[in-house]
Amino acid sequence: MDAKDSIAPPADGPADPRAVAPALLDWYDRHRRDLPWRARPGEMPDPYRVWLSEVMLQQTTVATVRPRFTAWVQRWPTFADLAAADEADVMAAWAGLGYYARARNLLAAARVIAANHNGRLPETEVVLRRLPGFGAYTAAAVAAIAFGERAVVVDANVERVVTRLFAISTPLPNARPAIRAATNTITPNARAGDFAQAMMDLGQAVCTVRRPQCLLCPLVAHCAAHARGEPERYPAKKPKPDRPHRHGTIFWLTREGANGSEVLLVRRPDRGLLGGMRALPTGPWEQDPPGLAGAPADTCWRALNTQVSHGFTHFTLDLALVTGEAHGTVQIGEWWPVASLGEAGLPTVFAKAARAVMGGVEAG
């Protein structure tokens, strides 16, 4: 048992925690979602698809992931295929999903699996934790769903369901040890993977953030928050601090190439925000507008009468947009055809900027 599981669960909650799993699994057998990464009844799960989906779904909705997952497995259907992929192609395929360290860790883990594990994913939570990108949640989810190991799987949906079942009033994130301990008391030895997926489905469809559908919930008879008449009170969260605001400049530098207009793209440093991604050149992101600091070339820059705003996890950003034409050799980056810029795999903030610039240039 994990040391965290030794924390005593809350005193409140189901009268018989053992009754939760049978009720939930019965509901799941009748209402489970049909998802492209999920094994159908009677089928064996594909560990590669389970792992990929769990990584893609972190901080990202099912609606967004579904088409991206399908395109990904068509291009790289196995661990070996992904391990042999070019990093730039992987990062481009991930563009728009955010949290780009996930893509780098996917590639790193695939290469370790191919080199050290005969192309097969290890089957235990303990060994999975040694792979790149396998934190506590991912290792537990893959071990349970792909291999049936009893593991305590806690994502945001499970946090919400469990805090309501046990009426855990401690605000997040401080409540997480108690949530994990409570989840441990209701996780069954058999069908642990189905139980984890059932908890996720319940949180997505029934035990929702707002207006939970308690009358449709298979666990309503066990729910302490419902018994108190205040399910939406849970989970409690600490107020979020205001995010700092930054400013920057994006440089749209073009030239006429053999096949039409080309724009300069650069590769962002491997470490740091949007690491390893193709991007438009940008100066520093600072508290005050940096003007033309960090310009990729000495040319006549023209400011557009528009800007792009974007929110990251820890700060918000306003970007001024300037355009210019290259004269002579530019020492950095690569030239990309403007007509096929959508294939460059730009992160969302730079894709927004490109659309704004092209719209502004055409309008001008």
Score class of each variant (00 low, 15 high):
A3C: 12
P14T: 10
A15S: 10
D16E: 14
D16I: 12
P17Y: 05
P17T: 11
R32C: 02
D34M: 11
P41G: 03
P47Y: 04
S53K: 06
S53C: 05
L57G: 04
Q58S: 10
R66Y: 00
W72R: 11
V73T: 15
R75H: 11
F79C: 13
F79H: 13
A93S: 15
A95L: 09
G96D: 09
H117Y: 14
V127S: 02
L128P: 05
A136D: 14
A136W: 13
T138F: 03
F147N: 05
V153C: 10
N157T: 11
V161L: 07
V162A: 04
T163F: 10
F166D: 05
F166P: 00
L172H: 06
L172C: 00
P173L: 02
A175C: 04
I186T: 01
T187L: 09
P188M: 05
N189Y: 11
D201I: 01
A205E: 14
V206I: 15
P218F: 00
A221F: 00
A221L: 10
E230W: 00
P235R: 07
R255L: 10
G260C: 03
V263M: 01
L265I: 06
R268G: 08
R271M: 09
Q287E: 13
P290R: 06
D298P: 04
T299K: 00
C300E: 08
T306Y: 00
T313R: 01
H327Y: 06
W336D: 03
L341D: 02
G342A: 15
E343V: 01
G345Q: 06
T348K: 10
A351W: 13
